Simulated scan of single mutants.
Amino acid sequence: MTELYFELIDADATVAFGKKLAASLEMPCIIYLEGDLGAGKTTFSRGLIQSFNYQGNVKSPTYTLVEPYELESVNIYHFDLYRLADPEELEFMGIRDYFSGNNLCLIEWPEKGVGWLEPADILVNMQYVDDHRAIRLNANSARGEKILSALT
């Protein structure tokens, strides 16, 4: 499977990279976002969501578990599972309904939902490297392969 690696010098570069990836996406699409607290997952998501002409504030859904962005061209569901106590809670919130249609699902802390989440098309891992961030993308499906090949 394809793997891409990029270094991002600051938050603006992280937002810009989210916008760049968005231009290659095909729906439905599931993206897992991995990395330590503060590594830039929500900043990356902000760029991606804003690329679909969303003008409002993009915040981390840490306390709500999911933040919906139902836009004209796509429905985006930004999940943050960091505070999820039991993965079975995802079944009660109807998690399977989010993985269909013209939906883009961005899932932070996907390891907290093991067994209840659909597999990712793209795995995004963000980490600190010295004074900047690094982002590694891995294709995890045929759709993910196609999306990442459009980035190169």
Rank of each mutant, 00 (worst) to 15 (best):
N75S: 15
E34P: 04
V66H: 04
G56F: 06
S45H: 06
L25K: 11
E72P: 00
L81Y: 07
D97A: 08
S24K: 15
P68F: 09
G56V: 04
L4K: 13
M93P: 10
T64V: 15
E67Y: 11
F99R: 04
T42G: 13
G40T: 07
L65E: 03
N53D: 15
L25A: 10
N102G: 12
R83T: 01
S60P: 01
L65A: 04
A11V: 03
G101D: 14
P68V: 11
T62A: 06
L21Y: 09
L65S: 02
K41M: 02
I95P: 08
E34T: 13
F6P: 04
A85R: 09
S73E: 14
E89K: 05
K59C: 07
A39N: 01
V58L: 03
G35P: 08
D12W: 10
T14H: 03
D80C: 04
E67N: 14
E91C: 00
E72V: 03
P28A: 12
R83C: 09
R46K: 15
D10Q: 06
D86T: 05
R83E: 08
Y69E: 08
V74G: 06
E7N: 06
N57Y: 14
E70G: 02
N102V: 12
R46A: 04
Y98I: 06
R96I: 11
T64D: 09
G35F: 06
V66I: 13
D10T: 07
H78L: 00
E26W: 00
L81G: 04
N57T: 15
Y98M: 10
G18P: 12
